[in-house]
């Protein structure tokens, strides 16, 4: 479970200013039921002095969402609206002696509710600048949206560069795969725009001789199969077994295991190994099966 500070626990177990507020004249409803948190902040503002006389909340959410809401109402009580607008999500987190990185969005939600409530009091329309992607780096709470923006803006190409710019990936390194995926995505888009990616630092491996794509005749095919079986025969014979090619039906190659190989516990493994060799030699997918599975016409 999360490592909550004593202050977070205290505000969760004994929330301040919870429930509806009589005579509220500034209400901010924000949150996302999809992400599992939603908050209604209710302010009672003196219209003359624009000072917040009372603040209440109702929250659907986890421990830190409820604690952040409670902290927010305590912070803004008695403030003027201009002072309240300067309250940052960090101020809310600091008031609670910090929040776990994954839970920082709870404090962000608090700040947004405050802005929405003040806009509501002033008769303005509040539009959220809420942007939250999937959390990539859990050590430093960096999400995919931010990483992607920074990668684009600064033309980054490596995980290390991303770490230098955003801190993401600088902790436990568990998210490096995720960062590489974002880099790959952005780099694919760059390629589409005709931008050149940096030259690879590593020399190319020598070309391997390729299997001939020429289609084999059935006699050539059977000869090749026999050659592969010949190459494994000494190993089978060493274990007092043997193998015989019985039939080739398209992709299915039927063999007869003899001697100690017949009924051996490792029969499946033996056939699998031979199949692998045949797939490589023939350059096509084939199945090696014991003759007992052959359907006779």
């Amino acid at each position: 479970m999360w490592e909550y500070s004593d202050k977070v626990r205290e505000h969760f177990f004994n929330p301040r200013n919870s429930g509806p507020l009589e005579g509220a004249n500034g209400i901010g409803d924000v949150g996302s039921i999809q992400c599992g948190d939603a908050l209604r902040l209710m302010l009672k503002v003196d219209p003359e002095s624009e000072r917040i006389e009372a603040a209440h909340f109702q929250t659907f959410g986890c421990g830190s969402a409820i604690a952040s809401s409670s902290a927010l109402t305590e912070i803004v009580k008695g403030m003027s609206l201009d002072e309240a607008l300067k309250v940052s999500n960090q101020d809310i987190a600091d008031y609670l002696d910090g929040l776990p990185p994954e839970k920082m969005h709870c404090s962000v939600m608090g700040r947004e509710a405050l802005h929405a409530a003040i806009a509501n009091f002033r008769g303005e329309v509040w539009s959220d600048d809420h942007e939250e992607g999937a959390l990539i780096c859990k050590c430093f709470a960096v999400d995919a949206t931010l990483i992607e923006e920074v990668v684009r803006a600064n033309n980054l190409h490596t995980v290390q560069e991303v770490t230098f710019y955003t801190k993401a990936g600088g902790g436990c390194a568990a998210c490096h795969e995720g960062i590489e995926e974002i880099l790959a995505k952005v780099s694919a888009e760059r390629a589409g725009l005709g931008e050149v990616s940096p030259p690879p630092a590593c020399p190319a491996a020598p070309e391997l001789p390729k299997a001939q794509p020429v289609k084999l005749t059935s006699v050539q095919r059977i000869k090749k199969i026999e050659a592969v079986l010949e190459s494994v025969r000494p190993m089978l014979q060493r274990d007092h077994g043997d193998i015989e090619l019985v039939e080739v039906q398209g992709r299915q190659i039927y063999v007869h295991l003899q001697g100690a190989c017949a009924g051996c516990m490792m029969e499946a493994a033996t056939l699998g190994g031979i199949q692998q060799k045949l797939v490589e030699a023939l350059g096509e997918l084939v199945q090696v099966l014991p003759v007992s599975q052959m359907k006779t016409a």
């Binding site: 948190d37 421990g63 994954e102």
Partner: peptide, 30 residues
């Protein structure tokens, strides 16, 4: 209309251990 982690924290205070399918307990957003 309520969230699982908050339920678990209150249960835990009473010495009762269970688990939840809420987003908040897993660290994901879903």
């Amino acid at each position: 209309y309520i969230e699982g982690e908050a339920i678990l924290l209150l249960l835990n205070k009473l010495g009762i251990a269970a688990s939840s399918g809420s987003a908040c307990t897993s660290g994901s957003l879903e």
